[in-house]
């Protein structure tokens, strides 16, 4: 395993008093690892990603990114300071911004933002959509834009939460191929959450099964 980029120890989290959504999770991801977490709906996969991203606070345990403690039950470094990319199923593109503006959103202060955005548009084969708005492009194209937007700030690692589940099978196959190529070209780690074993096997080289908030 390469240098650790993500280290999770004894992580627990619950949304209510009586039900734990995440129970005693331990995980280590190296800087070039491509890991997927497989499990049925409601097993806690998305909650785990939200905890890593800093969008939720854990009840117990700790999360380290690049050997810096970012979450425990007392301290929480906010999401914007973690340098993590997250792509979700609903894409969450900003509807009032063009494709280009969406991609540049996280690198507004970077003087090379135009160059970075152009490279990503090219890499993800969406150059022609540069000036379009999210509602003017298809679901698969939206997912490519969301991925480009997450990659633009050059995150420590990228998390994908069921990114392809809303797309049809033909489109998925094309995206698997294209995006796997993008991941191969990238130097950052990837953590994919999905319920689709085929997707997990194509996109990542290590699969972990999760059920009822626990790794099994």
């Amino acid at each position: 395993m390469s240098n650790l980029i993500l280290e999770i120890k004894n992580l627990c989290h619950s949304y209510s008093e009586h039900a734990l959504s995440i129970e005693n999770i331990n995980l280590e991801i190296g800087s070039r690892d491509r890991v997927s977490i497989l499990g049925p709906s409601g097993c806690g996969k998305s909650t785990l990603l939200r905890l890593i991203a800093g969008l939720e606070k854990p009840d117990q345990g700790e999360i380290k990114i690049n050997d810096i403690k970012v979450s425990d039950n007392k301290n929480l470094i906010p999401p914007e300071k973690r340098n993590i990319g997250l792509v979700v199923q609903e894409k969450a593109l900003f509807p009032h911004l063009s494709v280009f503006e969406n991609i540049c959103f996280g690198i507004k202060k970077n003087k090379d933002k135009d160059l970075i955005a152009s490279e990503l548009l090219n890499l993800l084969k969406i150059d022609s959509l540069k000036n379009k708005y999210p509602h003017e492009i298809s679901g698969g194209e939206q997912q490519r834009v969301a991925l480009a937007r997450s990659l633009a700030p050059k995150p420590n690692f990228l998390m994908l939460d069921e990114p392809f589940s809303a797309l049809d099978e033909d489109l998925k196959e094309t995206l698997y191929k294209d995006i796997s190529q993008v991941f191969s070209d990238m130097s950052s780690a990837i953590l994919l959450v999905t319920h689709d074993r085929n997707e997990a096997e194509i996109m990542t080289n290590k699969q972990i099964r999760m059920e009822e908030g626990k790794f099994i």
């Binding site: 969008l55 906010p78 999401p79 914007e80 900003f94 959103f105 997450s150």
Partner: peptide, 26 residues
Amino acid sequence: SSSLDDSSKLLGSSGWSMLSSIHVPL
């Protein structure tokens, strides 16, 4: 959608910045 807020935070824009660049236009 709250996922827009999450994306904005992860892309380094929270608080006043999120309010002015995401919420006010929408």
